[in-house]
Design a protein around this nucleic acid. Structure first.
Length: 309
DNA sequence: AACAGCAACAACCGCTCTCAT
DNA sequence: TATGAGAGCGGTTGTTGCTGT
């Protein structure tokens, strides 16, 4: 935690007609302890009342945020594990930042920051909209397999990724911090949701071909992720010795499929309107290699493979 | 060693929604 | 039904540490 003197910037007139100088900025250890003790005695909630009664010169809102995002006992500190990142990547498109409930110990604010600083950064580097099908395809094609590999092999550092990028550093740190149980042949459980990775491999040709589906129940099965029975344009690709996860290939077909179905007419006209991730790869090809892409999560091998589409 | 630029994250702000009165 | 307080969310800002020059 960063320690700094709080800045007093606001004076408000309370109902009791006395001016209260509100403290802003970073919380001090004393304030933290004070808030923790107060909540231990009186419980949380009624934040404005709490702020008033506790003697903390903070707004109720500030007290609430500090408690929920930092001080609450079950708040997990430290970097997000690969499992958590995987969950965020998968669930964010569906539920936005409100997926903290599926990541015990993680807060909405943390997820929001993660999404904005890491994921959206990658989207910018790829010149994609982070909500676009194209970017989701890229996530599934490259980022998620990496996370899956990390989950299976928690220790070895990723050479290409770990050089300059902050995100890969995070990934590696996360792996070291709390090695996850190996999910390679079983389910990954993070809180409520259960991710069944066996399903990816075994059922990659399932007939489930709709858009990404995450069950609204507590059990989330990745086998429900998009797949189609027919390949729209091309067979599964393998690059050199690299064969990508069937699960991701399934997702790839699903995305391509839905895109093709809805946008194949658009593909003949304005390039910018075409939602095909493959097309998008060409869109960014001009500065594909020599810009700061090399500093992103996508390593050069993967970029080259993507480029060959 | 000093500085600048950047990334990450904590915290704040404005707004909306919900619920009790 | 109207209203106000509480709660929560998305966007933004500020601070700090790291890295490159």
């Amino acid at each position: 935690m960063r320690v700094a003197m709080p800045i007093v910037t606001k004076r408000v007139c309370s109902s009791s007609e006395e001016d209260i100088e509100l403290r802003r900025g970073p919380w001090t250890l004393e304030e933290d302890n004070y808030l923790i003790r107060y909540i231990a005695c009186h419980g949380e909630g009624r934040w404005n009342l709490l702020a008033k009664c506790s003697g903390l010169k903070r707004t109720g809102k500030s007290c609430r945020l500090r408690w929920l995002n930092y001080l609450k006992p079950d708040v997990k500190r430290g970097n997000l594990t690969p499992q958590e990142q995987l969950l965020i990547l998968e669930l964010h498109s569906k539920w936005g930042n409100r997926i903290a409930q599926n990541l015990p110990g993680r807060t909405d604010n943390e997820i929001k920051n993660y999404w904005r600083t890491r994921v959206q950064k990658q989207a910018r580097l790829l010149k994609m909209d982070s909500n676009s099908t194209r970017f989701r395809y890229a996530l599934r094609r490259f980022w998620m397999p990496r996370l899956l590999r990390e989950m299976e092999e928690p220790s070895p550092p990723l050479t290409t990724l770990s050089q300059n990028s902050s995100t890969p550093q995070l990934l590696n740190q996360a792996s070291e911090e709390s090695p996850p149980p190996p999910p390679s042949h079983g389910s990954l459980t993070v809180g409520g949701p259960v991710y069944n990775f066996n399903h990816y491999e075994k059922n990659s040709n399932s007939e489930n071909c709709t858009s990404p589906i995450i069950s609204s129940s507590d059990s989330i099965n990745i086998s429900q992720l998009p797949e189609i029975s027919e390949c729209p344009t091309s067979p599964p690709r393998a690059f050199g010795n690299t064969v990508y996860d069937p699960f991701l290939r399934g997702c790839y077909y699903g995305d391509i499929s839905s895109d093709m179905e809805s946008l194949n007419l658009a593909s003949t006209s304005a390039p910018g309107g075409f939602e095909d991730p493959v097309y998008d790869c060409h869109m960014v090809e001009s500065n594909w290699v020599d810009d700061d892409m090399a500093d992103s999560i996508w390593n050069m091998d993967e970029l080259w493979q993507l480029r060959k589409f």
